[in-house]
Amino acid sequence: MSTIAPHLSQGSTQPTGIPKRRKKPLRRQGYKIFRVAALTLVVLAFIAPLVWMFLASLKTNVDIYDASKTLIFTPTAANYETVLGRNNYFSFVFNSFWVAFASTALSLIIGVPAAYSMSRFAMRRSALVVLMARIIPGVSLLVPWYYVFSNLSMVGGYGVLILSHMFVALPLIVYIMMSYYDSMPLELEEAARVDGLTHIGAFLRITLPLSIGGVATAGILSFIFSWNNFMFALVLSGAETKTLPVAIFNFVAYASIDWGGLMAASVVVTIPIMVIALFTQKYIVSGLTAGATKG
């Protein structure tokens, strides 16, 4: 008893040496609730239109206008039969994929070495010119483009679509890769040059393999832009080279809109991009944040 008594205060059964647990402040709990609520609202704001689009693609036009059948309705696949069967949307899917792939590949072949040169040799004036090309609104170039390409008999072909998409994709790739190369240490290339490599050899053997994350990021963003582009394809494409965004516009008539077919076509356009973004999100995040810090 004499050894226990010193550890107990008078009128208490709890040892004085053990600190009492403190309750979390109400302010911290309120902040946590606010954060969860804000994230929930943001997620719902992004997901709700996609859910509505998918549900509308399974409805008739009458059910779409009926508010009582927003969630409870009899699904139908007629809209997808119209899109994938009668309207031959698979050819439009091929057109979109080919234009996006070709414009992205050519932009990477040109843009990645250009970004390396601008970063390593401090070509800031050239970078400024590329930035100006990125800032210029694309709609201001459509009339000159149409005039020039029509005189060259290129309007309606794949080449003019690929070139027009490269005009926007190339500056995007250059600026993403410039920030990526600015964050990479020069010591690796200097060591390679000491071993006898030239600037081109050091780029191909050392720098380029280390910048695959940035190349993947730039390529993915360029592909997504080209896949979603509507304005250039609307003016410069032909009946055989029409892309998906332009084909969707066919569901909008002068007197009416086929909402069911429009939503089904939108789902067809959206799913490939969502799958690509889902499986490549780590490259997008790592590539976009690579140039945030140097060293």
Score class of each variant (00 low, 15 high):
4 I>H: 01
8 L>W: 02
9 S>Y: 08
11 G>W: 03
14 Q>K: 13
21 R>F: 10
21 R>M: 10
25 P>Y: 05
26 L>Q: 07
26 L>E: 13
27 R>C: 09
30 G>W: 00
37 A>N: 07
40 T>V: 08
42 V>Q: 01
47 I>F: 09
47 I>Y: 08
48 A>G: 06
51 V>A: 08
52 W>M: 11
59 K>D: 00
64 I>M: 03
69 K>D: 03
70 T>S: 12
71 L>C: 04
74 T>P: 02
80 Y>W: 09
84 L>P: 03
85 G>D: 14
88 N>H: 15
89 Y>Q: 15
90 F>L: 15
92 F>A: 15
101 F>H: 12
102 A>E: 03
103 S>R: 00
103 S>E: 14
105 A>E: 13
105 A>F: 15
110 I>N: 11
110 I>H: 11
112 V>N: 07
115 A>L: 05
120 R>Y: 10
120 R>D: 11
121 F>C: 13
127 A>M: 15
129 V>G: 13
134 R>F: 14
135 I>G: 09
135 I>H: 14
137 P>T: 01
138 G>F: 05
139 V>S: 08
139 V>L: 02
140 S>N: 09
143 V>D: 07
148 V>N: 06
151 N>A: 11
152 L>F: 02
155 V>R: 07
155 V>F: 01
156 G>H: 00
158 Y>I: 00
161 L>E: 00
168 V>I: 08
168 V>Y: 11
169 A>F: 01
169 A>E: 09
171 P>A: 06
175 Y>D: 07
177 M>C: 08
177 M>H: 05
177 M>P: 02
183 S>I: 13
183 S>L: 11
184 M>R: 06
185 P>Q: 03
186 L>G: 08
193 R>E: 09
193 R>Y: 02
193 R>S: 10
200 I>M: 10
200 I>R: 07
201 G>D: 06
202 A>L: 04
203 F>T: 14
206 I>K: 03
206 I>G: 02
209 P>V: 07
211 S>D: 03
215 V>N: 06
216 A>P: 02
219 G>P: 07
219 G>K: 04
226 S>W: 06
226 S>I: 00
229 N>P: 01
230 F>W: 05
232 F>W: 04
239 A>G: 03
244 L>C: 03
246 V>G: 02
250 N>E: 08
251 F>C: 02
252 V>Q: 05
260 G>K: 13
261 G>L: 05
262 L>E: 09
267 V>W: 10
268 V>K: 01
268 V>D: 04
268 V>G: 04
272 P>K: 15
272 P>Q: 09
273 I>H: 10
274 M>I: 15
275 V>Q: 13
275 V>M: 15
276 I>Q: 10
278 L>D: 05
278 L>E: 04
280 T>L: 11
282 K>I: 06
284 I>C: 05
284 I>P: 01
284 I>E: 01
287 G>R: 14
288 L>Q: 08
289 T>Y: 02
290 A>P: 01
291 G>V: 13
